[in-house]
């Protein structure tokens, strides 16, 4: 079974848990220590697709949350077939900034797919999360879905990446 490589990016404000999500997904680990990502960090994981002719090798570009280097981020986004935009459920500004990241990504990759991840779901109770989801619906043609994730508990992390992999297959 052949493997097709796909580049995806994780976008989002700093300290929303992008790196943690990737680590949870790739290594199955989680650490409370905060290490700011500088520039970009690339991870790789092959996602097995239950159906289809090939598996997908996800090359996950963990792009630093400090977006002062817009241009850099822009060039990092080139060639990405999809992006996961991460927001911190505890920080409303990060949720509001999702739109900016959406625009940034779509300007670089008009045909790309987007997944929105509300991360750190373990910090809120389900009802709050529900209201959050209701409060910030992201409904565009190219936004596949919105996930409530937790890198700490692993909630919906694998599902999210699986979803994106299937979308790109």
């Amino acid at each position: 079974m052949s493997v097709v490589s796909k580049k995806i990016c994780l976008l989002g404000d700093f300290c929303v848990g992008k790196t943690s999500l990737i680590r949870r997904f790739v290594d199955g680990q989680f650490s409370d220590q905060y290490l700011s990502t500088v520039g970009v960090k690339i991870s790789r994981k092959v996602v097995l697709l239950p159906e289809g002719e090939h598996n997908v090798e996800l090359l996950i570009w963990d792009i630093e949350g400090h977006t002062s280097f817009r241009n850099v981020a822009r060039s990092y986004l080139q060639g990405a077939k999809a992006a996961i935009i991460v927001a911190d459920v505890k920080r409303q500004d990060t949720i509001l900034n999702v739109e900016k990241h959406l625009d940034l990504f779509f300007t670089v990759n008009p045909q790309g797919w987007i997944l929105v991840a509300f991360n750190k779901s373990d910090l809120l109770n389900p009802s709050q999360l529900e209201t959050l989801l209701m409060q910030y619906p992201f409904e565009q043609a190219q936004i596949v879905d919105t996930y409530i994730t937790s890198a700490k508990t692993g909630e919906a992390v694998d599902e999210m990446f699986q979803c994106i992999a299937e979308k790109l297959a």
Binding site: K6, K7, L59, Q78, G79, A80
Partner: peptide
């Protein structure tokens, strides 16, 4: 290497 995406 693909210049934009960095894929081999």
């Amino acid at each position: 290497i693909h210049k934009a995406s960095g894929l081999v």
